[in-house]
Amino acid sequence: MSEPRIVKFEILRFRPEQDEEPVWVSYEVPCPEDFVVLDALNYIKDEIDPSLSYRWSCRMGVCGSCGMMVNGTPILTCNAFVRDYPDPIRVSPMANFPIVRDLVVELDSFMEKLTRVKPWIIRKVEKDPSLGEYLQTPEDLELFKQYSMCINCTLCYAACPVLAHDEDFAGPAAIALAYRYNLDSRDAGEAERFDVVNSGEGGIWACSYANECSEVCPKHVDPAQAIQRMKLTSAVQWLGVWPKRGAE
């Protein structure tokens, strides 16, 4: 293996018990060719400054913990290769969320928004499992599948220009999830979700279709498309042309 390259990292740090406001701190990290930004953070924590705080877990792009801004763009740091960035690399906490400490942001509002859209199967009658599965063809599955790939990493919230000034907006991931359930052949909850996603406060109509959410999604979900399609469906339903699934 070739010699590790010394890379300068500038990290936005904030320790609420001692800092008035966030400050940039520089670290030099020897980075092998296959290092990701998360590896560099782990190096800093293990070898230079154990007080650096950030979230991480699976290091394979599926748990959704390690999203941060790298040179201003939201990305999973376990999948951001150091070799792809010019020196110095700037790492800061995800935008549009309050900072708890260092690279850790507060996710309370996101968790509330997830719950708000009722992301679970809603049916009038539940079938007993002993009666077998609900039939769902591969085509039925394909309808909603991409929207079920969201890992809740919240990169799309960090990228969303609407959330930058309207913190009540339910946001791309939550709305895409509502859409995922609306499209699921096993679900009859569209009517229950209708008011939530159409509400003037935080609903789909706040979206300005900047498409930033879909561009940063590490799992290729297309929340912008979900929102646009929901707007269309809602408009048609509001006009009473076709019924909401689950409505009587």
Binding site: I121, P129, G132, E133, T137
Partner: peptide, 21 residues
């Protein structure tokens, strides 16, 4: 039964062409 229960809770199991798991 448990796997079927999870199907009822929305798990997107891969399917056969006829819609069975």
């Amino acid at each position: 039964r448990e796997l079927t229960q999870l199907e009822h809770w929305g798990c997107p199991w891969s399917r056969e062409p006829d819609g069975r798991v």
